[in-house]
Amino acid sequence: MNECQGSYPPIPGLQPVMSINALLADGETLGHCVEGYRVNYPIIGGHFTGPQLKGTVQLFLGWQH
């Protein structure tokens, strides 16, 4: 028997909370960085649904730029 077995609680099962459909703006190229080449894609809207929730992705004025 492995000495680690039984020393940790069981891993809980995971259940999906929601699905998100996001609208993305054109990419904003940031160029090369430590992790590689970076491009940001701003979220400009969309919607989400789940077993106990649903809604619309809305932007707050002034949060970008």
Score class of each variant (00 low, 15 high):
residue 1 M to G: 12
residue 1 M to H: 10
residue 2 N to S: 14
residue 3 E to P: 01
residue 4 C to N: 11
residue 5 Q to M: 11
residue 5 Q to W: 07
residue 6 G to V: 08
residue 6 G to A: 09
residue 6 G to R: 00
residue 9 P to Y: 04
residue 10 P to K: 08
residue 11 I to S: 03
residue 14 L to M: 12
residue 15 Q to P: 00
residue 15 Q to L: 13
residue 16 P to V: 09
residue 16 P to K: 13
residue 16 P to Y: 09
residue 17 V to H: 07
residue 17 V to R: 12
residue 18 M to V: 05
residue 18 M to C: 14
residue 19 S to Y: 02
residue 21 N to R: 07
residue 21 N to M: 02
residue 24 L to C: 04
residue 24 L to E: 04
residue 25 A to K: 08
residue 25 A to L: 03
residue 27 G to P: 03
residue 27 G to E: 08
residue 27 G to I: 13
residue 28 E to W: 07
residue 28 E to N: 04
residue 29 T to Q: 05
residue 30 L to D: 01
residue 32 H to I: 08
residue 33 C to L: 09
residue 33 C to N: 12
residue 36 G to N: 05
residue 36 G to L: 08
residue 36 G to C: 10
residue 37 Y to A: 04
residue 42 P to D: 02
residue 42 P to K: 06
residue 42 P to H: 06
residue 43 I to F: 05
residue 44 I to F: 10
residue 44 I to N: 10
residue 45 G to R: 03
residue 46 G to C: 06
residue 46 G to A: 10
residue 46 G to K: 02
residue 46 G to M: 03
residue 50 G to T: 11
residue 51 P to Y: 02
residue 51 P to K: 12
residue 52 Q to T: 14
residue 54 K to Y: 10
residue 54 K to P: 00
residue 56 T to E: 15
residue 57 V to W: 01
residue 58 Q to C: 14
residue 59 L to M: 14
residue 59 L to W: 03
residue 63 W to F: 03
residue 65 H to D: 12
